[in-house]
Design a protein around this nucleic acid. Sequence first.
RNA 1: CGGGGUAUAGCGCAGCCCGGUAGCGCGCGUCGUUCGGGACGACGAGGUCGUGGGUUCAAAUCCCGCUACCCCGACCA
Length: 490
Amino acid sequence: MAKVLTSMEENYAQWYNDLVLKSGLAENSAVRGCMVIKPYGYAIWEKMRDELDRMFKATGHENAYFPLFIPKSFFSREANHVEGFAKECAVVTHYRLKKDEENGGIIVDPDAKLEEELIVRPTSETIIWNTYKNWIQSYRDLPILINQWANVVRWEMRTRLFLRTTEFLWQEGHTAHATRQEAEEETMQMMKIYAEFSEKFLSIPVLVGNKTESEKFAGAVETLTIEALMQDGKALQAGTSHFLGQNFAKAFDVQFTNREGKLDYVWATSWGMTTRMIGALIMAHSDNNGLILPPKVAPIQVVIVPIYRGNDELPPIAEVANKMKDELSALGIAVKFDDRDTQKPGWKFAEYELKGVPVRIAIGPRDIENRTVELARRDTLEKKVMPQENIANYIKALLDEIQENIYNKALKFRNASTHRVDSWDELVDVLENKGGFALAHWDGTRESEDRIKETKATIRCLPIDGVEEEGRCVVSGKPSNQRVVIAKAY
RNA sequence: CGGGGUAUAGCGCAGCCCGGUAGCGCGCGUCGUUCGGGACGACGAGGUCGUGGGUUCAAAUCCCGCUACCCCGACCA
């Protein structure tokens, strides 16, 4: 087979980049740091979006839409929030262009300067809480459970397709509650939804935990995260859910009258998941032949490739293929019959492997004669000849099996890449030589955390299901009662 | 913003040192043979050599300015 990808072993970053481009997911655009998401990549995003949207609605959330622009002054209301985002904001200063009389072309009209600059949203807490102020007077107005599908802009120094782009697509949930407990429960509920989505839908096992003080969201009281492990041993933050306390309510003066008739500030959460998950999907499962997509996110779940020479061989094959296509479609399976005569079978095999289509069926003259098909699965690359009889039901079950198998493979890899370390030397050994997650005791201080960061790794999270265990901090030797997860991360 | 690099056909690159006819691979088009793992042959199309200036009889090539992009660092979902 002709090699179109740099191999993972040779250069992981290059492999990733090649794969995104060659599989037709996305490409760089004329705008620095911004990508074009191509139809195949966008189809994956649509699948993710639809599933998440369904899960949000099933838990009582509604969609709404808030402005792309945020008045600059809104940002300064919450001190930590502005500090966290100030360095990466795109700012709109003018609203008009005009002809450049001297040099030709077009220039920003200096007479069209805005009174107050507008920030292109890096996240929407401020504009939303400014709005919620008008919506909330009484506990009867609560809770507000809103989600927004949107694009945001964060002016990052260095970008990578899907993993970190200047503009990205995401959803951001913003909820308002009458009590602290309710908001905390919401924060946890949404984290669990992200974890379930990641594991059941994307087949990516995740660790759920709390971020440390220094790693949490700018403006949050507490940040929950799901952390996934990529095949190169690096961690990837795959989704976050923030308990915002009363920080934003105070910043935007959102008070309500509670059941006792007293004024109180509203409790808040926010939570988000982004197109970065497509990057996670790629790096968690794929191989040197291309993408490996779990069936639930695959835009094409089954592809049928006819093998024939001369136009007279095609009709009987097409007849069987179309019948099979109808049977599969009837079972809710996304199937494509690729009867283009502009590409040859071998080319198509390689192409659909590159695109990660979970199941491929090949039908040729031999199969017509024997009433069989050749069936190949992408996850294991196994091929076998199967009778045409009842193939649709077989494939339906097979897709579930593939979904499961991809998850199990990723879980096995994560387990093999998770190391308990009890000393500084062991930690460094894992980070530098083995990769993966290091489970280590940490004394909870900023000093020790900073020392860990010198290794280029970070404390990814304090697992919420972590067992209590006496131990000593691998940095300071001070007592600790729970292990934290340390890894190099994207 | 600091350090390094690149810009030549749709894509990947050579040519530059040593100035003089713009080239290779892939891709693309036509035709034929092929078609069960990215076929082969023949013919063909396609380039203001990033941009502005300078040196020269002559610049992709030498000199100066500008711009864009890539890699490494600080930042980050």
